[in-house]
Nucleic acid binder design. Structure first.
Length: 542
DNA sequence: GTAGGGTTAG
């Protein structure tokens, strides 16, 4: 094109730029734009906007602003498209303050009149930063200023409310859109609502909404809708329902991809249903799909959790045989599995292999190793690793302290656990509820229920109120230390906060009742603390 | 005869 004389029109060039950009080849598109400038194509706002868009999409919004400068020099007048693109770029880069500043400046200096797209972009930015209320205020404002909100504007806010689990507010806005404004929802609006409902496990409402979609001839569930459902069902452990959704996808020609199947495989693995997981995995190739590292990682995790370490190891080697490369997750999963069955030597060898493959342990790998060593009572190794890592980012993690405090007290090194508990505050870390729980459990284990009680009382004041686990741990500690005087008060407090006893506490309580250490007057209270599921005797043969 | 905004997932 650039060799033709005369040069093709800027429109022809712009079509090319746009086509390349639409294929996500932003740097190529930008390169073409630069060449256009060099050969003297008279660039206009259209082509300029595509070039700016390319910069923004590559998270180089500053370069986009530089191009805006070029606009002014070449007497190309930026328009509402230009500014919307830049505004979107800032928001993509989480530069919300600058985005707000730009938006206000555009209005104040009348550089352009915001249209519905610009408002929706700004609203998206506000939502992204948790300002749903301000986003709604802007929705009202645009309406007042004579710019009619459309389905995109509403859907943006509805989606954000759904993500923040504010489902009632989302439906309020949805009803306003449909009934007060007469704006028809589309499949994206529905997908956001379905996602929100799934997240809250409101399955009855989900199916109601799906029916509503089916009845509306203009809208039908799409690939995304089904993906949301598969994912949500799996997360809630309802893997069979997820599989049914996949069957519907196949029927409807919305071919599930490898990611969809991986979700399902992972769902089975998390439930320990390894036979089903494996069958599904083995059936992938016949469906024309090739397992990726994620597929393997789910299986590794499943086999390791089911303590089928040989099978896990076999699949691990299979990754390389299939021409894939095990990633940090594959290695970390295998390490966890090996530690779990006490094969520390092999774990060490695998760790070295991992490093020789150029993989760097991440926070998760580090925690797995610390936890694994603790559980295998390798106290010296744990401590030397911890000190070796020193004051780095890896050790600025409350979870690391939780593992170590728990590990040390379980290995009979309560004094180390206590020191760690002291030290973490010095590092600017805040103990979370798990930190307190492991520390309280440790103190009870070593016969110090008074100190445990003291810590327990301190939790509320420290802005970290005890949870159900804390109560269970402390209750068990009181019995273990024959500290019967405090039991009743603790039980009453549990009842007041609607916490219940867990299975191990319950079995301990039963033993204590049999031994006569629980006063009969407490039986009613204890009864209230036993969750209904545990009372279910239908599974117990008579 | 060309440009900008909203949904899922490891």
């Amino acid at each position: 094109m650039i060799q033709r004389k005369p040069l093709p029109s800027v429109v022809k060039f712009t079509q090319l730029l746009n086509a390349v950009a639409k294929m996500n080849h932003f740097s190529s598109s930008l390169h073409l734009f630069k060449q256009m400038c060099v050969v003297g194509v008279p660039v206009d706002a259209y082509s300029m906007n595509i070039a700016i868009k390319c910069c923004c999409q590559m998270s180089r919004t500053n370069d986009g602003f530089a191009l805006l400068g070029c606009c002014f020099r070449q007497a190309v007048v930026p328009n509402v498209f230009t500014f919307s693109t830049l505004l979107d770029g800032l928001i993509r880069e989480d530069r919300i303050i600058e985005a707000e500043r730009l938006f206000k400046k555009l209005i104040k200096q009348k550089l352009c009149e915001p249209d519905v797209v610009m408002y929706s972009t700004m609203i998206k930015g506000l939502c992204k930063f948790g300002n749903n209320d301000i986003a709604i205020a802007l929705l009202r404002l645009m309406d007042e200023r004579g710019c009619k909100p459309n389905v995109v504007v509403y859907s943006t806010i509805i989606d954000s409310l759904c993500k923040d689990k504010m489902i009632e507010a989302a439906f309020k806005l949805f009803n306003e859109m449909v009934f007060a404004k007469g704006i028809q929802p589309d499949v994206i609006t529905y997908n956001s609502l379905i996602y929100g409902l799934c997240n809250l496990c409101r399955w009855d409402k989900v199916s109601k909404l799906l029916k509503e979609m089916e009845e509306d001839v203009r809208i039908s569930p799409n690939f995304q809708t089904f993906s949301i459902l598969v994912d949500a069902f799996c997360k809630d452990g309802r893997v069979d329902e997820a599989e049914a959704v996949i069957d519907i996808m196949v029927e409807r020609g919305e071919a599930p991809d490898i990611v969809t199947y991986n979700t399902l495989i992972d769902g089975y693995c998390l439930r320990g249903e390894m036979i089903k997981a494996r069958m599904l995995f083995d059936s992938l190739t016949s469906k024309g799909l090739i397992p990726d590292v994620f597929s393997y990682n789910s299986l590794l995790n499943g086999y390791c959790k089911s303590l089928k370490i040989e099978e896990a190891m076999h699949m691990f080697h299979e990754i390389t045989r299939k021409g894939l490369k095990p990633d940090i997750v594959s290695y970390s999963t295998m390490l966890q599995g090996l530690f779990r069955v006490g094969r520390c030597g092999e774990a060490r060898k695998l760790f070295d292999e991992m490093r020789s493959q150029g993989l760097t342990p991440n926070e998760c790998t580090y925690r797995i190793i610390l936890d694994g060593l603790c559980n295998n009572r390798q106290v010296e190794d744990v401590l030397s690793l911890f000190h070796l890592v020193g004051d780095s980012k890896l050790n600025s993690d409350i979870q690391v302290y939780n593992i170590l405090i728990d590990g040390m007290s379980k290995c009979g090194k309560l004094f180390i656990a206590r020191d760690l508990f002291q030290d973490l505050t010095l590092k600017g870390l805040k103990p979370n509820v798990r930190t307190y729980n492991v520390m309280i459990s440790g103190l009870c284990r070593e016969g110090m229920p008074e100190e445990a009680k003291h810590l327990f009382r301190k939790m509320g004041e420290s802005g970290c109120p005890p949870d159900g686990v804390t109560y269970n741990v402390l209750l068990q500690g009181y019995f273990k230390n024959q500290n019967y005087d405090d039991v009743e008060m603790l039980l009453q407090e549990m009842d007041g906060r609607r916490y219940s006893v867990d299975a191990s506490t319950l079995s301990m309580l039963i033993d204590e009742m049999a031994a006569g250490s629980v006063d009969r007057s407490m039986l009613k209270l204890i009864g209230k603390l036993v969750p209904k599921e545990m009372m279910d005797t239908s599974a117990v043969p008579r």
